[in-house]
């Protein structure tokens, strides 16, 4: 068994090792061959290979010593305007000595940058195009300001298909000598839905139990890793224990840092699986929508969601009372 995170160990080094996003990989390979790269935006959901593709591109361009010509920044951690001004500029303006005249700067989670920082970035991109090419990585390209988008070649990453994810997971399981059942493979796809990082992390965590990996182990591990058990919370509320339900909600938000918008999404999904009359579901959906909109308006997540939980408690009491 290996002593690294498998998601890192099996991260492709070169573009030709990538299992998915065939079209994108082809275009990037042609950039590498031509030894020229435009500014790029890689947009798409998590775990689909955006960061990997950027790293591979740099590797294929510069060879083994690619780290010298590469800078990786994460906008979520350093999203202020000053970082763009200082770090990015210092890196971008210094010319490299190699045959390729430009360096590559990967700006991960760029959609988390403030508007001001993006404006500053736009000028930097223009000024130092000769010495530095930018790869902006984002979940939503829509959050990148127009002027930057128009200067970049766009690439849309999509979730891996079931087959693509399976191939990769099975390959790792074989290399790591893990006993992975077919049933386990399906379960991993069921919970990860083409998010490969999550799939590999789930595989490794399941493997750490030291048993053959079945759907049971996968669900146990994932359930453990994601305590945001929205369904349980809703059930407690419907059993009439509002105070306990609110406590769960509070734990999810404060202790596990689950975002209110994620909770809403899950509540909305679970809502339609509840054992209540069909027409009540749609009434409750309206209320969830209301809460969602209030959160957009800046209201407090816990206060709003607990009002919804109180409504669940009331609904189920009505149901029992007839």
């Amino acid at each position: 068994m290996s002593f690294e995170m498998w998601a890192e160990k099996y991260r492709p080094k070169s573009l030709n090792q990538m299992v998915n996003q065939k079209d994108i990989v082809e275009r990037l390979e042609s950039f590498a061959k031509a030894r020229n790269v435009p500014h790029c935006i890689f947009a798409g959901p998590p775990g689909t290979g955006k960061t990997t593709a950027a790293l591979c591109l740099a590797h294929d361009l510069y060879g083994e010593a690619y780290r010298e010509n590469l800078m990786e920044l994460n906008a979520s951690d350093e999203r202020g305007i000053n970082v763009v001004r200082a770090t990015v500029k210092t890196f971008a303006r210094v010319r490299t000595l190699g045959e390729i005249p430009f360096k590559i700067l990967i700006l991960d989670e760029a959609d988390n940058m403030t508007g001001d920082a993006q404006q500053a970035l736009r000028r930097t991109m223009e000024r130092y195009t000769g010495t530095c090419r930018f790869v902006l990585i984002a979940n939503y390209s829509g959050k990148i300001i127009e002027p930057i988008q128009s200067r970049c070649a766009p690439f849309r990453f999509t979730y891996l298909s079931k087959e693509e994810q399976e191939v990769h997971i099975k390959y790792i399981a074989e290399k790591e000598k893990v006993d992975l059942t077919e049933d386990g493979v399906n379960a991993i796809y069921d919970v990860c839905r083409g998010d490969l990082r999550r799939a590999i992390n789930s595989l490794q965590a399941a493997a750490s139990l030291g048993k053959p990996i079945t759907s049971e182990t996968v669900y146990a591990v994932v359930g453990h890793a994601h305590p945001a058990d929205v369904r349980a919370m809703m059930k407690i509320a419907m059993d009439g224990n509002f105070v306990e339900a609110r406590k769960r909600l509070r734990e999810m938000i404060l202790k596990f840092g689950v975002a209110g918008s994620d909770l809403i999404k899950q509540i909305h999904r679970e809502l339609f699986r509840l054992d209540i009359p069909e027409n009540w579901k749609i009434n409750l959906a309206e209320i969830v929508g209301d809460v969602d909109f209030r959160l957009v308006e800046g209201a407090d997540e816990e206060v709003q969601l607990s009002a919804f939980l109180a409504r669940l408690t009331e609904s189920s009491a009505k149901l029992k009372g007839g």
Partner: peptide
């Protein structure tokens, strides 16, 4: 429950 709901709302 209905009064609890009103209060929380």
């Amino acid at each position: 429950p209905s009064e609890l709901k009103e209060a929380m709302e």
